[in-house]
Design a protein around this nucleic acid. Structure first.
Length: 491
RNA sequence: GGCGCGUUGGUCAAGUGGUUAAGACUCCGCCCUCUCACGGCGGCUUCAAGGGUUCGAAUCCCUUACGCGUCACCA
């Protein structure tokens, strides 16, 4: 075999992919591409109990959205397929039998209800482990059981002494005492292989050169290494990634999961984060380009990615930083693209405004939101003037109060009456000189207008922009109502 | 509990025996300004603790603490 770099992403089909999993896929993809290698997708569905319908489709869609494309996989095929483990059962069976024949594995007829045993261990803290009762069964007994049709599993025969070690790219040399290794099941009663077995067989058969996966697999790696030895195969290079953590309510952290809120890739997209931004942020969680650049296209990531930038310690997922990254992408977008992307998040308003005004509004919003779903909160007043309090007319800094507002508002209305062309420029052409003529400071002058127009102190854009978007008729109506409100409050 | 891995500001993180310990996010202040935002400038806050080794340690060694992971016919 050549020394071509080949990596893989091997998820089990649960209908969910949080960004920790996505990151694993991303790094495997980046590393392969950075080295002109192949990246493949393999579905590890050896646990029928956990199988989720359409999960494979979901994984495909997620990877596609993140622009992570496989060279080989269930839908694309490839010369080492099939790429779905449940379709490779005869392969695992063959290799498991080979190990039994070599005396490196054995049939175990104990059939203990492992799930219950596991439960007990978890709760009772009795970390017993399998007692190896069937490890040295006499051949006659085995034949007898087989004839009776007694169900069995196949277990890996671990060495009882010595140690097994391997070199991990991020952690260095790691070794385990063989006596601590359980005679793990490699082939289940139902004929399915376990993860620890199928993984090794497939990685070898698919010529995987670098195994990139989470640290949770580091303790099972010696078992894998032993399996490679049993078969006389060269193990791949191991790269164990530190976990992505989520912040718990009490301030502690733990491995990212659904408990931590919306951390699924698709959930984040639904919130209005751009797939590119999510990928960009995730790339930086646990890997450093060792430069000050933080915004990367996928091609740049591929060009810059290298294993020595991987960190050993867990990283905490931070929405603040994701917001910032996403905002950077917004700032780099064209108004038209932003308007199009934002539309689904404010469908009614966009339709009511029409393309021209919606695009204009979007241009104002583009630097003011860090994800699309912040838009409704900032634009609700365009569709319906909120029932605001006249108290809003008070503003110390600009020396405005309801009485002052009652003086200013009529002037505003007079000015906009003179506007000929209802465009931002046309409005501003009258507004600017009008304010100057009034002798009132700009900030003071605009304050009551903004309140009357929007019913709130903070608006995306200034009065000119609000007037334009609202339209002449609606603007006058709101200014008039504001005047009444200010007058009433001034008395 | 055994085993494994980890620990640089609130978060991400550079740093590999000699640096004023980068940079980014967050937060705060100032400037710009028709509010907000953008942009510009500045500030707060860090080598988990204790022992060594060394002329010199965030960097090397040991111990402790803490965190995470793992001990399934789950992956």
């Amino acid at each position: 075999m050549t020394d071509r770099v080949r990596t893989r992403f091997a998820p089990s089909p649960t209908g969910y992919m949080h960004i920790g999993n996505l990151r694993t896929a991303l790094y495997a993809y980046l590393f392969a591409k950075a080295n002109d290698g192949d990246f493949l997708l393999r579905i590890e569905d050896t646990d029928q109990k956990r199988y989720v319908a359409d999960a494979v489709d979901f994984i495909n869609r997620t990877l596609a959205a993140a622009h992570i494309t496989a060279n080989e996989g269930p839908d694309i095929g490839g010369q080492y397929g099939p790429y779905i483990q449940s379709q490779r059962l005869d392969i695992y069976k063959k290799y498991a039998e080979e190990l039994v024949e070599k005396g490196l594995a054995y049939r175990c007829f104990c059939c203990d209800a492992s799930e219950e045993r596991h439960q007990e261990e978890q709760e009772g803290k009795s970390f017993g482990g399998y007692n190896r009762a069937c490890r040295d069964l006499p051949q006659e007994t085995i034949d007898q059981y087989l004839k009776e049709g007694k169900p069995y599993v196949i277990r890996q025969k671990m060495p009882l002494t010595g140690e097994t070690s391997f070199n991990d790219v991020v952690h260095g040399h790691i070794s385990f005492q063989n006596e601590t290794l359980e005679d793990q099941v490699i082939l289940k009663q139902d004929g399915m292989p376990t993860y620890n077995f199928a993984n090794v067989i497939d990685d070898h058969l698919m010529h995987i050169s670098h195994v990139i996966r989470g640290t949770e697999f580091i303790t099972s790696t010696p078992k894998h290494v032993l399996l490679y030895q049993f078969f006389g195969w060269n193990p791949p290079t191991f790269i164990h990634l530190p976990p992505v953590m989520g912040k718990n309510e009490d301030g502690s952290v733990s491995k990212l999961s659904k408990r931590h809120g919306a951390t699924g890739f698709s959930q984040l997209v639904d919130m209005g984060y751009l797939p590119e931004a999510i990928t960009n942020y995730v790339a930086l969680l646990g890997w450093s380009p060792k430069s000050e650049q933080e915004i990367f296209t996928m091609d740049e990531l591929i060009a810059k990615f290298s294993l020595d930038g991987l960190s050993k310690s867990p990283a905490v997922f931070d929405y603040n930083k994701l917001d910032w990254v996403n905002a950077e992408y917004f700032k780099a977008m064209s108004d038209a693209d932003f308007a199009a992307g934002a539309k689904p998040f404010a469908e009614d308003l966009a339709n009511a405004l029409g393309d021209a005004k919606w695009t204009y509004l979007a241009s104002l919003l583009r630097t003011r939101v860090s994800r699309y779903n912040e838009i409704p909160a900032q634009t609700g007043f365009f569709q319906a003037l909120p029932d605001y309090d006249a108290d809003l007319f008070n503003n110390k800094r600009n020396k405005v109060n309801p009485a002052k507002a009652a003086e200013i508002l009529p002037v505003v209305m007079d000015i906009i009456n003179t506007v000929e062309e209802w465009t931002p420029e046309g409005i501003d052409d009258k507004l600017q000189p009008g304010v100057a003529d009034s002798g009132i400071k700009m900030g003071t002058f605009m304050w009551p207008a903004r309140i009357a127009l929007s019913g709130q102190k903070v608006t995306p854009g200034g009065v000119t922009e609000l007037l334009y978007i609202l339209g002449r008729e609606e603007s006058v109506k709101r200014l008039q109502a504001g005047l009444e409100k200010a007058k009433a409050a001034a008395e």
